[in-house]
């Protein structure tokens, strides 16, 4: 798509949407949002960019193949699930670290878990979209 308006706007939209997706991810525990929606938004940001500039350009920005985000996310989620074992607690017990931080809120395994979901969603959505685009 060659439209100047679309290209220019998506150039600026990419970072804004990405930051917004992180914001959505972090606020998820208290207000509407969360890893799943955040991940979808981040993935949409990249897809939007790829529509404007072409697949190659977007791939250059991401650097790694988006597929690698999937195992990474799964590992995050797994760590969040297994971490309580260190404290002799059952699998997936929520652990929390002290006082809430500014902007982020309470830090705990649930947040790590949500980050895992975030990456898995970005990874799988982008893998599906990119491979379909590339082949068809």
């Amino acid at each position: 798509m060659k439209s100047i308006i679309f290209r220019t706007s998506s150039k600026y939209l990419l970072p804004i949407l990405l930051i917004f997706s992180v914001f959505i991810l972090l606020r998820g525990h208290y207000l509407p949002g969360g890893g799943f929606v955040g991940g979808l938004m981040a993935a949409l940001a990249f897809i939007l960019h790829s529509f404007a500039f072409g697949l190659e350009e977007t791939k250059n920005i991401i650097k790694i193949h988006p597929g690698f985000l999937m195992p990474m996310g799964l590992v995050f989620a797994l760590i969040a699930g297994l971490a309580p074992w260190i404290y002799q607690e059952p699998f997936m017990t929520g652990l929390w670290y002290g006082e809430p931080l500014r902007m982020i809120g309470m830090v705990g395994t649930a947040l790590l878990f949500d980050i895992g979901v975030y990456f898995v969603v970005i990874g799988s959505v982008l893998t599906v979209m990119f491979s379909i685009r590339e082949i068809i």
């Binding site: 525990h29 949002g33 890893g35 699930g81 997936m92 649930a110 878990f113 979901v117 969603v121």
Partner: peptide
């Protein structure tokens, strides 16, 4: 420790489901 019930269910109460779903 979360106020967003939907998200708490997803990542905590039914976290194992979510893990398998991912």
């Amino acid at each position: 420790k979360g106020r967003n019930v939907v998200n708490v269910i997803l990542v905590d109460f039914r976290g194992f489901d979510t893990m398998v779903e991912t």
